[in-house]
Simulated scan of single mutants.
Amino acid sequence: SKLTKLTNLVKECENIKLTTILSHYSTQMNNFGQFKKNVESLIENIKILSDAGINVENINLGGGFPEAVIMPETQLREIANNINSTLSNSEFNFKNIYFEPGRYFIGDAGIFLAKIIKVSEDRWIFLDIGNHICPKFAKCSLRFYNASKINEPHKFKTSIAGIVPTDQDVLAKNYFFTKYLKENDIVMVTNVGAYTLTFSNRFPYTLPKIILVKNRTITEIFDPLRNYDFSLT
């Protein structure tokens, strides 16, 4: 069995010490029930390892947290307390418990500034960005605001498409937006700080300019005409 192979491998490899088990259950998890399933699955498998003589000191519950604007701090604390209670009721005591809340930390740190390049009669608007830089695989909780009419109510259903020439490049359907739609209006797209660059591609368009806003200082950190490709290094 796979368990037998694992136990034999651990015994044979003197320089390998198995100390931690990782379980990344899902993404955009917004209720304790999902986290609980992850914890219970992890404990069940740790018991199997323990019975086979493999003792796990630490657990890593992975990520799965949504953006901070989606999960308020009160909800985060409630989930953390429930996880702690579930682990306390298990038969195991762990030295360290790890999480990977990357999206929670940086999801709302990224913003796209896009432009409306076309307005159709059935309240579809087309932006000058698309799935090449805002991919569906990123699983972002996108929010759209008409920055050119920011004080107007956003309560009129509008569908939003990207610039990539495919019917799959739909960013949102029936999204509440401003009543009046106009070409060249600036649209602010929030919650794009996690994974958008990671999953982006250079076809059929180059990456946009990237600026860093820190306190009151604005710094351009990437220009496709100058830098050709983006890297944080």
Results as ranks from 00 to 15, higher is better:
N55I: 13
P224S: 05
E100W: 02
F203P: 00
A114K: 03
V164R: 01
A172Q: 05
I150S: 09
P204W: 02
N8D: 13
I46W: 01
S231M: 06
L207F: 04
Y205F: 05
K209V: 05
I125H: 03
L9V: 03
N82I: 02
Q168N: 13
E100L: 08
T190H: 05
G130S: 03
I16C: 11
N184A: 08
H154F: 13
P101G: 06
I133V: 15
N184M: 08
L6K: 10
L171N: 10
L42G: 02
S120V: 00
Y145R: 01
K149D: 10
E183A: 05
C140F: 00
R202H: 12
K17T: 12
D128W: 01
V213D: 01
K139Q: 10
S141N: 15
K115D: 09
N55K: 12
K17F: 12
K37C: 10
G107H: 11
N93W: 04
T7P: 01
S148H: 12
S159W: 07
G33Y: 14
F222R: 04
I186E: 12
L76W: 13
N201T: 09
P153F: 09
L225K: 11
T166W: 05
F176R: 09
A109I: 00
A194S: 14
F177Q: 04
I117W: 02
N184E: 12
G110V: 03
K118A: 11
F92C: 06
G107A: 07
G102S: 09
N30I: 15
R202D: 11
E183P: 00
L181H: 04
P204D: 06
K11Y: 06
V10C: 10
I106T: 11
F112P: 07
T158F: 08
